[in-house]
């Protein structure tokens, strides 16, 4: 039986690295298209990544912690980005 705590930390680290790479892509998309959705997604992914880092640094296995609020914050940012996208306003597309 492998050491499960190490396994979970390993997976969490890989996930955090993945989030960071995706966040960088979204940041680049934001500079390319000036679309607010991308910078909000970038922020949400970075926050999710930070929760993974926090889970390693804080040895408590319970979720009644600020980690849990950070996760909720990230998802609320995603929801906010979707709502913001659907607000009635003239959308700006990047014109070549």
């Amino acid at each position: 039986m492998p050491d499960l705590s190490n396994l979970n930390h390993f997976l969490g680290g890989a996930i955090a690295a993945g989030y960071s790479v995706a966040a960088l892509f979204f940041l680049k998309f934001y500079f390319r298209t000036k679309d607010r959705l991308f910078v909000l997604f970038c922020a949400a992914l970075l926050i999710l990544g930070s929760t993974r880092v926090a889970m390693v640094l804080v040895n408590e296995p319970t979720e009644n912690h600020f980690i849990y609020w950070l996760r909720l914050l990230a998802y609320l940012i995603i929801l906010g980005a979707i709502i913001d996208k659907n607000r009635p306003q003239s959308t700006v597309h990047a014109v070549e």
């Binding site: 390319r32 679309d35 991308f38 980005a81 659907n86 597309h93 990047a94």
Partner: peptide
């Protein structure tokens, strides 16, 4: 010509428009 999704990236963002 100039109001459609100009590339995949923009259409990713546009996907989240309900209307």
């Amino acid at each position: 010509i100039y109001s459609g999704p100009t590339d995949k990236v923009q259409s990713f963002a546009d996907a989240f428009r309900l209307k």
